Amino acid sequence: MIRILVCLMLLVGTVVQAQDTFRNPLLSKGPDPWCIYKDGYYYYMHTMGNHLELWKTKNIAFLKDAEHKTIWTPPAAGPFSRDIWAPEIHFLRGKWYVYFAADGGDNQYHRIYALENSSQDPMKGDWVFKSKVADAEDKWAIDASVFEHRGKLYMIWSGWEGNKNGRQDIYIAAMKDPLTISGKRVRISKPEYAWETKGDIGDPNLRHVDVNEGPEMLKYGKRLFIVYSGSACWTDDYALGMLVADEDSDLLDPASWKKKPEAVFKQLPGNNVYAPGHNSFFTSPDGKEYWILYHANDHPGDGCGDKRSPRIQRFTWDKEGWPVFGKPIRTDSLLKSPRL
């Protein structure tokens, strides 16, 4: 009997240890990852290209074992039937929304679209296609994210100034409701530093693309941070940059946003991590740990496709209230799961 009890104790200890630790990546592939935590569950999405899929799990570190399902398949043709990128799920004003970029097969017509679900559990109920979400100029747009600050909704995204490719900037606009932008878009960042202007593509008609994309909100203390991806995703130089504004400032005033001149999270060949970017943020279930979720490649030259895989790691804050993201961790590193 004693021997059986000892064996059971050892087995339980092994299971607990297995649930308490993990290794990146969370999935073998998954570009543009996003997750939020609500009512005891993480909800996760990434770019699938031809449909929208949603994961639900109590422990994001074990995403590979999570329940998941297709929540929307696009029509066979039309302006939002192809190239479905960077979906994000948000709970706003009592309903669930998914924002995503799509076109009809021609990149120059990429725009932001939205689905709505009134069920309390987004894995249930009906996901209903609602509309395009655009400002009055209705220019090329991808990578939309929505956040609330002091009772007001804002959308941030990556867009073109005109109608031609060549540079992607970060824009912000106020929202009347989760489906409607009110007022004009405002550019708060454009590629200007060396680290965010790597984008040669070898096309004689378009030799270079400068990129700011994937903006994500991070609030802490009395500051608002927008962490975004700079340089082209097909380069190993793809990395994260940061804008910061005071919580009391006018978020629609470009002067309110200050940009750090250097990347805050970038490739680390010594750890076999290349092109880390398109991130999002979450906390542990107890709210005490801060984590960054991002995609990266394992090898140089892996490019901007399905070799990108989602990874998570903890980050901290310095005494002045600035995020300290550290360096991207090797995929063979054993990490502790987010604290429950």
Rank of each mutant, 00 (worst) to 15 (best):
L153K: 01
G94T: 02
G40T: 05
F62K: 06
V15P: 09
L179M: 11
S280L: 08
P215H: 05
H208Y: 09
D306L: 11
Q108Y: 14
W291S: 01
E289T: 02
A114L: 01
G159H: 00
G287H: 03
Q17E: 13
K139A: 04
D135M: 03
A239D: 14
D143A: 09
P328V: 12
N107E: 13
S189R: 07
S280A: 10
I2H: 13
E88G: 09
K259F: 04
M1I: 09
I2N: 14
G214R: 11
Q168R: 13
G221E: 00
E116N: 04
T73Q: 15
P33G: 08
I329W: 09
W195C: 03
E161M: 10
G287L: 01
W291E: 06
L179H: 07
P204N: 10
I181F: 07
K336M: 15
S118F: 07
N271V: 15
I156Q: 05
Y193W: 13
P323R: 08
Y109H: 13
T180R: 10
Q267I: 10
G40A: 02
H149V: 03
G151E: 06
M45T: 06
M9G: 12
T73W: 15
R330T: 05
Q108N: 11
I226M: 10
C35I: 15
Y109K: 13
V211A: 09
K198R: 08
P323N: 08
F80W: 12
D210C: 07
R330N: 05
W160N: 07
M48H: 11
L334S: 15
F282L: 01
A18N: 10
N279Y: 04
Y99L: 00
Y294Q: 12
I112Y: 05
A136S: 12
K38S: 06
Y37T: 07
R82Q: 02
L10K: 08
K124A: 12
D236T: 02
N117Y: 04
A275C: 07
V146Y: 05
R330H: 07
V186I: 06
K132N: 10
E247A: 12
W96A: 02
V16H: 08
P87H: 00
R3P: 07
V16E: 03
F265L: 02
I226W: 06
I71R: 01
V324S: 13
K307V: 15
I36Y: 06
Y37H: 14
W127P: 04
D65N: 11
G221V: 00
E161T: 11
H278E: 08
W257D: 05
P261C: 07
I71P: 06
S229R: 02
H208A: 06
E262T: 13
I71V: 09
Y97D: 03
K64D: 14
